[in-house]
Design a binder for these strands. Sequence first.
DNA 1: CTGCAAAGAGGCGGC
DNA 2: GCCGCCTTTTTGCAG
Lengths: 216, 216
Amino acid sequence: MRVIFARCSVTYSGRVDAELELSDVLLIRKDDGAVIIHATAGLKEKNWMPSGSSWEESPGLIVSEFPKRGERLEIYLDTVYSDTEHQGELSGKLIRIGGEREMADILSMKLHLIAPGLSLVAREARTPVGPIDILCVDKKGNPVAVELKRGASGVGPEVAYQLLRYIHALEVMPEWQGKTPRGILVAPSLRRGMKELLDERGLSFVRLTYQDVVDA
Amino acid sequence: MRVIFARCSVTYSGRVDAELELSDVLLIRKDDGAVIIHATAGLKEKNWMPSGSSWEESPGLIVSEFPKRGERLEIYLDTVYSDTEHQGELSGKLIRIGGEREMADILSMKLHLIAPGLSLVAREARTPVGPIDILCVDKKGNPVAVELKRGASGVGPEVAYQLLRYIHALEVMPEWQGKTPRGILVAPSLRRGMKELLDERGLSFVRLTYQDVVDA
DNA sequence: CTGCAAAGAGGCGGC
DNA sequence: GCCGCCTTTTTGCAG
């Protein structure tokens, strides 16, 4: 892993065109070919190249290319303050707990938290307009599509329409003919106006956080 | 800007819980408090903390917190291979060319590429369910909502419903009473099944790339 | 291998 | 400030 601190300007051309004006930046080139350029402030990188990119150095210029996608990065070096090679042998795994997948897995075993009388039909039930997070049936045999959102920022209108999409798909599926599909949104919070939109469209909302689901 | 190459394990707790097993990583702490942790391979950072985060060092342990959001990062140091401070004075701007905004700006001056007889009403026309990229009228005075996607990866069903949302909003807007809104999707490519969905819902599709729009 | 949606998404513009 | 949406999104997972 190569780490260079330098004053340089950068151009990228590929999916878009971009130009970073002369700046003091940290250039990182990883062993797998990934290139990352960070300014001295801000969380996000300014430019990058994917793993597998080439790396050609000439005096004052570094060029990295990823021909498969037609991407090219040019680094015009003004001053190199430091240039170090780091050998890293140990690469541990990143374990993440509490994602939407996991929340859905647990919730599908605790369906009473959503509504009484539900039975699980499928997780990630395939429809032509995308997979339904949790598909259930109620006691009357009607399908119930459950859409789950884990995020802390409130759920917006697009999710209501996502649920309506699923309901529409269920309505036209042969196996649910004669049944009346329902939709339930499960999320920690809603954005302003969403309660009204859900009511208007006949959708339900159940407020649950990841922690609620785990603790129950 | 502090740059440390070290063998360590990391735990994050906040929006989720995450744990990075003992690894050789690059720790970056920027002057504005942002923290970024990169493994020796892969484009994306393994862990991070936002700008404004705290940074407390004690022997073998670094703790970074962002109390406002209840986030906490703990870095358990096993071996520090290198530890450098870099002073960066120059911070240039990043200029990006060819984003969706720009594509829409140019396209709104070349409306004949979308359909004949269109006149521009507004860019980013506000509706209660979000802004319409390009709002036009046709020769009959009917509103035409144009949704633009620049991305190379094909457009999925959610965009069809986004357009339907806008059309529904236009239908109930007083200024378009008695008119019949239409929707046109402009994008470089569609995912499988999208053509049928668009037809079914009475929406049109025009295939255009950013380059097409610029060159025309 | 390809398609599809989540992500600790971040960041930006508009109101 | 909140709200909506784009992103050089990347990454992971399932068919």
